[in-house]
Amino acid sequence: MINKLKIFFVILIFLFSSGLKASEKKTPFIDTNWNFKGIFGKFDRGELRRGYQVYSEVCSGCHSISQLSYRNLYEKGGPEFSIENVKQIAASFDVLDGPNSDGEMFTRPGRLPDKFVDPYPNIESAIAANGGAYPPDMSVLAKARKDGPAYIYSLLQGYVEPPKGYELDEGVYYNKYMDGNQIKMPNVLFDDLVEYEDGTKATTEQMAKDVSTFLMWAAEPNLEERHKLGFRVILYLVILALLVYFSMNRLWSRIESKK
């Protein structure tokens, strides 16, 4: 038994060794409560809706979210806006379509199946418009960084004055949580920047929290379904394991008795 435990822990350490990194002096992220964490984690609908508002009014000018479709906004597991509401949201965007029967490309109002429209026609123009840095697509951004939501949440609140004597390049800003502390994105969140439709006070911290949650949903729209199914699957497997365990013992008792 002791040997089994030894082996188990050795393997566990092995598995997680790739997560343990050198003690690079990194500022720990701001701690906060995330509704979607943990095995019973769920998204707060209010946070998702406010987060969408922040994305759409603040971030979408520079950041695309091209793997999302407008219909995702009313589908289960997300902000769950009403379908009428989402039709209006989609229609407020101009989508490139065509060619028509004259052979020309044209724009038309967005529809539910359309993907979110990119702010720039291509990556090169996005880089050119943002001082040589590409504003990353946000579809899976929350999974593309370690502790993604906490990182985004902290970064958005992490713009401070650089320490005395710190050399800051042209067009670069100082951020406590950015790797290397230099970031080409300026501070974009200020208190009351957005007027929330549900009346919540739009402090910088609130907006950072809401948009981080929204981005977590954008990266993992199936999170709630995954947790729900996971609970049922593991419960089923535990019950099955018990049944099989007792069957196994009953079977093997024949062997002991047949000595």
């Binding site: 598995l15 899976v140 951004l141 593309a144 996971g230 699957v233 593991i234």
Partner: peptide
Amino acid sequence: AGFVFFAPNILSHPDNY
């Protein structure tokens, strides 16, 4: 199932997203 349903990305690297 524990990994698949509750920590599906813990063994892989975020950079692959």
